[in-house]
Write a protein that binds this DNA or RNA. Structure first.
Lengths: 189, 189, 189, 189
DNA sequence: TATGAATGAGGTTTCATTCAT
DNA sequence: AATGAATGAAACCTCATTCAT
């Protein structure tokens, strides 16, 4: 079990730095401190490793978010809570967050089943659907809102990463971003 | 000159379908109708081809945008003009637009010089800077506004692509997206 | 271990016949009875193979010479012993001896460290140094004597090879050569 | 005519530094300041260039030697004259001298006709034959004497190059070398 | 005579994967 | 479960040579 974690950790670091194809499995094994064959003992193919890593990262993020939210919370604060904590998590797990992007733009993403994708987006999907119904969010297609939500998360993250401010500045930027996005999506009479 | 264009065209189609690494240079040459060596006669490296293709696509988009705008235009309509035409161009040049994303998320992007990146973003940078100064846009960091602008372009594009509507629906979606983004960035007393 | 030896043996035969560049690594692997990748598993580079082969041949000769000599031998017979046995070895290991020349004239030779070169020449260097000190050899720079020693080995070898005499003739030629060289280097009042 | 010389000069410098196979014809052309095709206009193949360069260098050396000797000279001073001037030439034309060695050890050498080889060695061959007959040189096979003569030239050259002394030291070393070699080959009662 | 774009065979090297231990 | 030598297909790239201008 230990070794699988080492492999995932090494793969994450290398994939983020050099890309999937820029990273030989031999290098992953070496950095993980295991033998070449061991990697293939745990993951039948390189693709399987790539996909497993994505799923494990996604699940980690999902677990974190479900930890800081509760079913019973009101929609408006819940939205803020999820939005800001997603960014906090991203800033503290940059490699993992970068890997998510990298993976989702790659042809590998096609191998993720529709079910899994839907499951990953379920929380926000539900939240937005409810928000629209209760007239807390604009009356627009849910998919459009969701897509904008996601791309704004990336946009703000990108901005913060590039301008590399201090931790306090980062927090301020997250809040500023939240305000803008909320203002964009909220219901206006 | 002819052959260079053929190579770029073949590379674009293949890279978008199979990814950089999923595309052998031999296949690019073959699809371009030139000999293998010809590709390397014009581009010393596969990497050089990948980067040149990116630059050529970016320049094409920039040329298109500068064609449909005029220095003298007012900021507000100019913003709308650029925003909507960027999306129209993206929808009519999907492979090229997809390639831009693919490239910018890849490690190759690190090879693009800061100068070049700034040049590519110059038009919008200038527009937003001016808009902020004239109190037509919110008083926020220009880089944040720019980052959000870009990510929203991608978000809306993604939404339209995924929900595959008819041309008219596409146009409506573009306008809806424009309204939301403008509402997000515009000055509010 | 086995396979590394097979690769070296195949490389020697081919390099001597066709030269380094006239010999594809694929041919080396094939003649060695191993897969192409196996060669690169043991030698990261073709260059590394070329250099390793040289070192291994040089060490073999050194081992042979140290086998037939003893520290305690007197200088004069020791000189004769080494001189003649070097030639005997060369005549019985023509490919290896030819390879040494081929390598030392090639640009590859520049990659051999000064330390290694000195180590290879250590036995004769010591012997000549001592011979000069004890007034058994001429009072000339040791490096000059060493250089002449080596080139005369090659000269006599070349003569024998070209005139292809019978074994007995070869032995006579070796002794004749020895006499001339010894006469050239020995102390003369 | 000019361009052929430029090509030969560039080829010499590059072949000496990188070897025949380490030097692309394209690089030769570039360094010579001519177009790629121009090289092949003057030399049908790369091999032809390699061989022509060898012949031109050999002829240059032969011309120089015949310039400083006369048919009528006595054998003993003529021998000294040729020996020392060969070394002087070598020291002042290092690249050319190095190229001769490089070429003669390579498989290319097999392409030089026996006639040409004999012609190149004719002067010394004749001199040694005559010297043996007149009991000025030892009664040994001419080929052996010739082979030793040549290898000693290389040996002394090598020594001088490696110990890099000042010009005066070089001259002294040449003379010391001459004395040793003459002492080796001369007739002794 | 000179050019340089074009060619394509062939070379070196990489790398995911297997398998005997 | 773990190893690492062995594999061989396939990738990238080189380069001598040709040819239309």
């Amino acid at each position: 079990m230990e070794k699988k974690q080492q492999i995932l950790a090494a793969a994450l670091a290398l994939f983020v730095e050099f890309g999937f194809h820029g990273t030989p499995t031999a290098k992953v094994a070496q950095d993980a401190g295991v033998a070449n064959g061991t990697l293939f003992h745990h993951y039948k193919t390189k693709d399987e490793l790539v996909v497993n890593l994505y799923n494990s990262v996604k699940e980690e993020l999902a677990a974190y978010l479900s930890e800081i939210t509760h079913e019973s919370d009101f929609i408006t604060p819940k939205f803020k809570n999820i939005f800001t904590h997603t960014l906090y998590w991203a800033l503290q797990n940059r490699a993992k967050f970068y890997y998510i992007r990298q993976f989702e733009v790659s042809p590998h993403y096609a191998k993720i089943s529709a079910d899994t994708i839907e499951k990953h987006g379920a929380i926000m999907n539900q939240l937005i659907t409810e928000g629209v119904k209760k007239k807390l969010l604009q009356t627009r297609p849910v998919d459009l809102m969701l897509s904008l939500y996601n791309s704004n998360i990336f946009g703000i993250y990108q901005y913060i990463i590039n301008s590399k401010p201090e931790p306090e500045e980062q927090q301020a930027a997250v809040l500023a971003g939240y305000e803008m996005v909320w203002d964009m999506l909220r219901y206006k009479g």
